[in-house]
């Protein structure tokens, strides 16, 4: 009958009227952010970085600029190069995470924040100093060792370069992007 469906619709809205709002009042409340969230402020561990620039090559936009200098005074793990420049032009970054996927030494991690508003474009370029000093709350994106530890970047716990572990070494053994999830127990 004409009108019945309309009444049905009215009842649906009335039912929803009595429900609790589903929206979230952002600055005070936040939605739960998942550990794999690909956020801004990359977490970069200088101690692990060899300056190989795989990340720079793999970035679809070519926004990572790396300048290295041969150095024999380097004390960092396994490297022969001193990094002079590691700029990420955040204002062009699309947070695809391919740079993180490319890094063979697990030196680069996606960040977990998203509130990096700035007034000028130049401020949006993350320099090597910013990367060194920024709080390290790495996202677990593409980093099974962090996910295996149930690490939650939003818990506020910061990880040092020793704690983040290095899983990719096992993966990249065959010189390919092979993605075995269970690490071989024999190795390391």
């Amino acid at each position: 009958m004409y009108g019945i469906e309309m009444v049905k619709g009215l009842l649906v809205t009335l039912k929803n009227f009595s429900k609790k709002p589903v929206t979230i009042q952002y600055p005070e409340q936040r939605v739960s952010q998942h550990p794999r969230f690909r956020g801004e402020e990359f977490s970069w561990y200088e101690e692990r970085c060899t300056g190989c620039a795989s990340c720079a090559k793999y970035c679809p936009l070519g926004i990572i600029e790396i300048v290295t200098d041969p150095s024999d005074t380097a004390v960092k793990q396994g490297d022969k190069y001193k990094l002079e420049k590691f700029d990420i032009q955040l204002f062009r970054c699309m947070f695809c995470g391919l740079c993180v996927e490319a890094c063979p030494y697990d030196a680069l991690f996606m960040g977990s924040g998203f509130e990096e508003g700035k007034y000028t474009r130049n401020d949006m370029i993350i320099t090597i100093d910013d990367l060194r000093n920024s709080p390290k709350n790495p996202s677990t994106w593409y980093r099974p060792q962090l996910e295996a530890k149930n690490y939650d970047p939003r818990s506020g716990q910061q990880l040092s370069w020793k704690e983040v572990g290095r899983e990719s070494w096992n993966w990249h053994k065959t010189e390919k992007a092979g993605m075995r999830i269970t690490p071989d127990p024999k190795q390391d």
């Binding site: 550990p35 690909r38 947070f95 391919l98 996202s139 593409y142």
Partner: peptide
């Protein structure tokens, strides 16, 4: 939300890769 769990993004997902998907779901 589920996509965010899966691949860390909500709209621009880039979840799949030639030859499969980039990672197993959590």
């Amino acid at each position: 939300d589920m996509f965010e769990m899966l691949c860390g993004a909500r709209i621009t997902l880039s979840y799949m890769r030639p030859g499969g998907v980039f990672w197993d779901p959590p």
